[in-house]
C-alpha cells in the first residue's frame, strides 16, 4: 500500500542494488504454451496483463475483494491477483480472451450483450469467467452457502447463482441483468 512508511533502516548508506529474483515459469494460456521468466513477486494477474498483454483480465482492487481478475485455472475460477505467477507451473489458464472473440462470442458473452449484463464493462470479463465456472460448479454438484442439502445435487436457482456470483462486484449494478443472462445460458445447456 502506498502510505509513507518509516522502516527501521540502518542510518548507513544503502547497500548496492541487486537485481530482483526471477524464475522461469511455463503456463498454458488459452491453449498456448507460454514460457516466461518472471519476478517472483509478480502475480498471475500482472503476468497476464503486463507481460502477455491479455488485458481482458482486469485489476480492480489487487486484493481479492472485487473479482474483476477472475480467470479459470485448471477448470476452476480463481482471483488471479491473489496468486503469484510462479505458483502456476504447467497450469491451464483460460482468460476472457480464451472464451470468445468479438466475431465469435462464447454463449455467455453473447447472453451478456443480449441482456445488457454490464455497463462500464470493467468487471465484465471477471463476471463472465465466474458465470461460466459457476454453472460448471453447480453441474458438478459443488455445494454453496445457500445449498439446503449436502446430499442432494444443487440446482440452478436464482439463489444459488446470486450466492456464487457474490465475489464479483459490479458497481454499475447490472446484477439483475447478469442473472437473466446466466439463467438463459443455464437453460440452453440443460
Amino acid at each position: 500500500m502506498a502510505i509513507a512508511t518509516t522502516p527501521q533502516l540502518d542510518a548507513a548508506q544503502p547497500v548496492p542494488a541487486s537485481p530482483p529474483p526471477a524464475m522461469p515459469v511455463s503456463l498454458e494460456v488459452n491453449g498456448k504454451r507460454r514460457q516466461l521468466e518472471v519476478d517472483t513477486r509478480t502475480t498471475l494477474l500482472d503476468v497476464l496483463r503486463d507481460h502477455l498483454h491479455l488485458t481482458g483480465t482486469k485489476k480492480g482492487c489487487d486484493h481479492g475483494q472485487c473479482g474483476a481478475c477472475t480467470v479459470i485455472v485448471n477448470g476452476e475460477r480463481i482471483n488471479s491477483c491473489l496468486s503469484l505467477a510462479v505458483m502456476h507451473e504447467g497450469d491451464r489458464i483460460t482468460t476472457i480472451e480464451g472464451l470468445g472473440t468479438p466475431d465469435k462470442l462464447h454463449p455467455m458473452q453473447a447472453a451478456f450483450v443480449r441482456h445488457d449484463g454490464f455497463q462500464c464493462g470493467y468487471c465484465t470479463p471477471g463476471q463472465i469467467c465466474s458465470a461460466v465456472a459457476v454453472l460448471d460448479e453447480i453441474r458438478a454438484g459443488v455445494p454453496s452457502h445457500v445449498t439446503a442439502s449436502l446430499t442432494e445435487a444443487p440446482q440452478v436457482t436464482n439463489a444459488e447463482m446470486r450466492e456464487r456470483m457474490s465475489g464479483n462486484i459490479c458497481r454499475c449494478g447490472a446484477y439483475s441483468n447478469i442473472l437473466e443472462a446466466m439463467t438463459e445460458v443455464a437453460g440452453d445447456g440443460a
Binding site: 481482458g56 482486469k58 476472457i96 464493462g121
Partner: peptide, 10 residues
C-alpha cells in the same frame, strides 16, 4: 461496444 466489452478487447 458490447462485443468489445464482453471479450475484454475494449
Amino acid at each position: 461496444d458490447g462485443p468489445l466489452k464482453v471479450t475484454g478487447t475494449a
